[in-house]
Design a protein around this nucleic acid. Structure first.
Lengths: 145, 145
DNA sequence: GCTTTTTAATTTGCATACCTAATAATTTGG
DNA sequence: CCAAATTATTAGGTATGCAAATTAAAAAGC
């Protein structure tokens, strides 16, 4: 329990690290990641990938555009839509700002030997099963695996 | 990684469960828990235990008092301070609203046999060590173990 | 004792993240 | 061609969260 707690805390602290280090909030970097993975995106699709309402995401995107990290252009094919993409500046920032929490986790997992990894996997699987969390989707900080 | 992800997601969804089920936000229940553990508390001490600034916690407490879940009385010994405590209604709610995410985790851990539990513990310990998360404190949803 | 400093709580002002509902523009189905 | 669905946005609301200013009370210094 104590170790799980620590892992959670490490991930939780990720958000603050981002805010102080990269001058943007968690949701803003989250949106940036989604655009980095899959671009261009319509606002609706971006909102869906973030599990947020479109009206919420409009504000996030507005602030990213104000920072010159994202571009918003009308979609030629369907003029109801917009095309959201990373700007050059946004791509650069995304390169410099990996996913600290996830990187640390991956680093930690790599330090385990195959036997440990196996038992960890099995134990977690059993844990997850009992927690009935199977259906739930991945949160943003694991989005890229 | 997938299983860790699911556990995170389950805990993340806890907040929404609380909001819809108990009509209050995460920080509000968090404050309620702290008062349930250790009462009465001064505003400053409550803020410290939640790792938030006092000015933030004033608002949270205001809303809890408006819901008649918390009482705020001046401290007799030091009249600069206030004594924050659970109201009768607050105690009742806290009894009905355990910590779903944590309870699920505990339930999951109990389902493991001793050998699994041991290897899980060892694996997580190794993981934590590499993540250098040792120093970090427990987040609220693990505060009661 | 009296003044200065410190401490506690609050208020104010600001930015952000959320949501629902309403609106405008556009596409699609019939 | 027109009604219905879809897309983005705006409007209006609540809640977090902070720093800075304010008020009141206690503690410290002299």
């Amino acid at each position: 329990m104590q170790n799980l707690r620590r892992i959670f805390k490490a991930v939780e602290s990720y958000s603050r690290t981002v805010e102080t280090k990269f001058g943007m909030t968690g949701p803003q970097l989250w949106a940036l990641w989604e655009l980095g993975r899959n671009s261009p995106l319509s606002l609706k699709d971006l909102a869906a990938s973030m599990h947020l309402s479109p009206s919420t995401v409009v504000g996030v995107i507005d602030r990213l555009i104000a920072k010159d990290l994202v571009t918003r252009e009308p979609d030629q094919a369907d003029r109801r839509r917009v095309c959201l993409s990373l700007s050059t500046k946004g791509k650069e920032l995304l390169d410099q700002a990996p996913n600290p929490a996830q990187d640390q986790l991956i680093k930690g997992l790599k330090s385990l030997n195959p036997g440990q990894l196996k038992t960890l996997s099995l134990s977690l699987e059993s844990l997850v099963k009992t927690m009935a969390a199977d259906k739930l989707e991945a949160p943003f900080f694991f989005a890229e695996e």
